[in-house]
């Protein structure tokens, strides 16, 4: 067969036609793949034993190593938001007594989770995508599959569990830091007494429940979106870079979309 095959080497008449793909098809394919990764992650979370220490290691990488960055970022965000609120309030009604009360409600219900999740996504999402993406391009995920270790079970689930646990913890800590940074700015810039600022009378249990659910969902979403992008890495270091960028962009987009959905549902089920 060899000579004949060589002569017709470039003819390529018997290969199946390449399927035509549009941007919409690609996007639907990505969403379907994200859905598959999510379902597999939930399946393995409840049906398989974890490798010893896998979740703890990820908790350290996702939690402890993000703590300083998140504390500093949320401290500045809290200070800036309260300063701007104070300036606008002073123009309308020069009464600052309710700034702390309205700010803490806003913080608990939405800002701590939704704003905090964004820097968290850049820090954690990029790390997860780069790590898994590097494993894909160096064939480590293939080696896992050859040993009957599904990469979703072995790589994604520990990161998912750690991100839910530590992501939630860090967002709560970040919220607290933003609150106290706001208190400092309120006192220094607008002369509001900390006792007046620390007014929780407007906060309801619904605000706390909705804020906590958002923290849990964002923690899991960052891990799932970033892992899916990492697993879809194609090519060498350029592919890892692309996957990392897409993980951060995808996570931010998912956070904003989920915030809209959860806030809308929350307004009906847990009114402000």
């Amino acid at each position: 067969m060899t000579e004949a095959a060589a002569q017709t080497l470039d003819a390529a008449t018997d290969e199946p036609p390449l399927p035509k793909r549009s941007a919409l098809t690609d996007m639907l394919g990505e969403l379907a793949d994200l859905w598959r990764v999510t379902l597999d992650t939930l399946f393995y979370t409840f049906n398989h034993k974890r490798e010893k220490g896998a979740v703890i290691t990820q908790c350290y990488a996702i939690g402890n190593r993000s703590l300083f960055f998140m504390v500093v970022t949320m401290g500045f965000i809290g200070a800036i938001v309260v300063y701007q609120i104070g300036i606008q309030t002073a123009r309308i009604i020069p009464d600052m007594s309710l700034v702390g009360a309205t700010y803490v409600k806003l913080l608990i219900r939405d800002l701590a989770a939704s704003v905090g999740a964004m820097p968290l996504a850049t820090r954690v999402g990029a790390g997860i995508a780069a790590e898994i993406g590097s494993m894909v391009v160096t064939e480590q995920t293939d080696a896992l599959r050859m040993s009957a270790a599904d990469p979703v079970d072995y790589l994604v689930v520990p990161r998912f569990l750690a991100s839910v646990l530590m992501g939630t913890s860090i967002l709560l800590i970040g919220g607290a830091v933003a609150y106290f940074a706001g208190m400092l700015i309120c006192n220094l810039s607008f002369d509001v007494n900390p006792y007046v600022y620390m007014n929780f009378s407007m906060v309801t249990s619904g605000d706390c429940i909705l804020g906590f659910i958002k923290c849990l969902v964002y923690g899991g979403t960052i891990a799932l979106v970033s892992s899916q992008r990492g697993l879809r890495t194609f090519g060498g270091s350029e592919g890892v870079g692309r996957a990392t960028t897409e993980a951060v962009v995808g996570s931010l987009f998912a956070i904003i979309t989920l915030n809209l959905i959860m806030s809308t549902i929350g307004n009906f089920l847990l009114p402000a």
Binding site: V137, T138, E139, Q140, D142, A143, L144, R145, M146, S147, A148, A149
Partner: peptide, 29 residues
Amino acid sequence: RRGIGMLFQNYALFDLSVAENIAFPLRRL
């Protein structure tokens, strides 16, 4: 895959000790 061993072009060694790397298929399969 129990019946197939494979050496990968890029080594594909995990960030584990040499012993853990070699034992990995045995533990899983």
